[in-house]
């Protein structure tokens, strides 16, 4: 598992060993895209106004950071290129197998995105209720008992949370078109 921890990236070696050129290729695409994006932002930052009484102005600090970001991204691309050239191609179907292995994560992410976009329309409570039910079903709550527990959890963390915030904290969560 990769995580915020500084020393928890040991999966890198294992992954790169087994994935042939895929890992360096993924890095090269990602870092090259970042370098292009930051170069465009660097140019845009040049349009920011300067100030009469302030030597640095609004653009200097972000441009300094963006310049360093461009350099580091290019350095990573160069480093990964060497790794790419030194390795043989990965076996066919690797990407498909990787995507299949991550199907639940992508499923949850898709549901989460739908939930977030539904909040302004359905309101927090209804959107959360549907998300919690579907999310728990997707992750394995399929039996009758599991579904009853899922419904109870969904009600508490959707309508229950909305009521708590409205009545106790006087914060109105989005009510949506039906609110």
């Amino acid at each position: 598992m990769s995580s915020p921890s500084p020393d928890r990236s040991s999966s890198e070696e294992r992954f790169t060993e087994s994935s042939g050129r895929s890992a360096p290729l993924a890095h090269m695409i990602f870092n090259a895209a970042m370098a292009v994006l930051f170069a465009a932002l660097f140019l845009r930052a040049g349009e920011l106004p300067s100030s009469m009484w302030e030597p640095l102005g609004a653009s200097s600090f972000p441009r300094l950071v963006l310049a360093l970001l461009i350099l580091i991204n290019l350095a990573i691309v160069a480093k990964e290129w060497r790794a790419f050239a030194a390795r043989s191609a990965a076996e066919r179907g690797l990407v498909g197998r990787w995507a299949w292995r991550h199907r639940l994560a992508f499923g949850v992410l898709g549901l989460f995105a739908l939930f977030i976009f539904a909040v302004p329309w359905l309101g927090f409570a209804w959107a959360a209720l549907v998300f919690l039910m579907l999310g728990q079903w997707l992750l394995g709550a399929r039996s009758l008992k599991g579904l009853i527990i899922a419904l109870a959890v969904a009600l508490v963390f959707s309508f229950g949370v909305e009521t708590l915030f409205r009545e106790v904290f006087v914060i109105s969560l989005p009510r949506g078109l039906f609110g």
Binding site: V119, F124, L132, G146, I149, A150, F157, V161
Partner: peptide, 19 residues
């Protein structure tokens, strides 16, 4: 189980970010 905790914490994150 993860099937409960993951969706619930995601909802809490949305509430926290909005509030």
């Amino acid at each position: 189980p993860r099937s409960v905790i993951v969706p619930v914490v995601l909802v809490c994150c949305v509430v926290g970010a909005f509030a």
